[in-house]
Amino acid sequence: MDILPQLIVNIIIAGAIYALVALGFNLIYGATKFFNLAHGVIAAVGGYAVFYFAKTLGWNVYLAVIIGVLLAGIAGYGLDKFVYLPLRKRKASNMVLLVASLGAFTAIQAVIAILFTSQFKTLSYSVGTQRIFEIFDGVITQTQLIILMSVALITAGLILLLYKTRFGKAVRAMSDDEEVAKIVGINTNRIIGRIFFIGSAIAGLAGILVGFDTGIEPTMGLGLLLKGVIASIIGGVGNIYGGVMGAFLLGFVENFGIWKISGEWKDAIAFALLIVFLLFRPKGIMNK
């Protein structure tokens, strides 16, 4: 039974990565209510930006990370401004937005592949192996700890933003009822634009950290996105705490599942969990 502590640490690591993606996705979905397939590739944008600035140009790594996060945010903002906003203005349905997001996902992924080739690349800049910490007999690396800390910080930051600022109030009002929010005078489109920026920046950070932990390739986005979505839904869509808890629950069920069965069924287990939740607890763990 001595693999149990490591299993637990594995779960925490996996959950933290999903949580990062879920945070960004949840924020955007809460405001726009459509399934944005391009969210995943925005994470890749962040990762590749850091690759370019830190590895190709050799700039300072922290600077590159900041640039990467900003670029991802801008990319998401731009996507909203030039594609989703015009569609919303035309009262396009969610399905149309889905197809448009598929188009954006395909296009941006192609651009990344053209600029950087499809080869799998790592972001690690240190020559030796990373610092490793031991927690209760389980091993965790420096990058993974950073991921965990980021989740905590961003969650706290988002809670502050949503509950302590006027901006956040407007966002919550929009999540509840977009029509009424508009009537009351909230400029929903501008708020959505900012939400896209923030959510996409978080996605960019997720891509960067995953890049440091394992690596990047142009197609990395979709897998991350799907898991982030599952985490958001089982946590309760639009709910910040919920998304994080959902992510860890997903990490738990997945890793526990493949411990008992086999790694080949990982995705199926994740989706089965989703279906179970949709059936029995559609409002998510938090049930709000």
Binding site: I3, Q6, L7, N10, I13, A14, I17, V210, D213, T214, G215, T219, M220, G223, N255, I258, W259, S262, G263, E264, K266, D267
Partner: peptide, 16 residues
Amino acid sequence: EGVLQDATDLRTQITK
């Protein structure tokens, strides 16, 4: 055990 082609989290398999 197998891993999916795009898998980057092999931790549990390796632990097993």
